[in-house]
Design a protein around this nucleic acid. Structure first.
Length: 153
DNA sequence: GCCAACGTTGGC
DNA sequence: GCCAACGTTGGC
């Protein structure tokens, strides 16, 4: 079992939006970064737990807990010429972008802001907190995951 | 294969 | 809106 942090802009797709989905799942489409893709394609397994992180918003931070709900499969938006995520170099025979389905797991009692994360000595090594970090999917250690869940409860 | 130019991310 | 950081592109 692995642990992850996945960023989403809440104006586009928030943790509350995930919860409101009929099956509480959502294909994590639109990732167009190779490192992030590799995490989904090669490293994630169904059941892995996810910190659902809100970025580019008033108060960035961890909004709730989700989990990986499928194995990896091609992101359909890469083949759709009308999609903003269309990739002309991708073919169905040779897809370039993969995704997993993400499912609501549980709420936190309180939102855990980025500011709060920065206060904790034991989280200083998180990739999320490193300068210049832009990756939208990041691995998180078990200890980091558990501490952050504790901060939210 | 180098690297400058350009685009994007994301906190502030 | 700014800007630092960093990934990608494309000319050579």
């Amino acid at each position: 079992m692995k642990y992850w942090l996945m960023k989403s802009e809440p104006d586009v797709f928030s943790f509350e939006d995930l919860k409101k989905r009929p099956k509480k799942t959502e294909p994590w489409n639109g990732v167009r970064n190779y490192q992030a893709r590799n995490f989904m394609r090669d490293e994630m397994s169904p059941g892995d737990l996810i910190l659902f992180y809100h970025s580019s918003c008033e108060v960035p931070g961890v909004a709730g807990i989700a989990k990986v709900a499928s194995s990896a499969y091609p992101d359909a938006t890469q083949f759709d010429s009308k999609s903003e995520y269309f990739d002309p170099k991708a073919t169905k025979e040779n897809p370039r972008w993969f995704l997993v389905d993400v499912m609501f797991e549980k709420d936190l009692k309180t939102y855990v802001s980025l500011e709060e994360l920065k206060k904790h000595q034991s989280l200083q090594g998180m990739r999320l907190l490193q300068k210049g970090n832009r990756l939208s999917i990041l691995p998180v250690t078990k200890d980091e995951f558990e501490l952050i869940v504790k901060l939210g409860n």
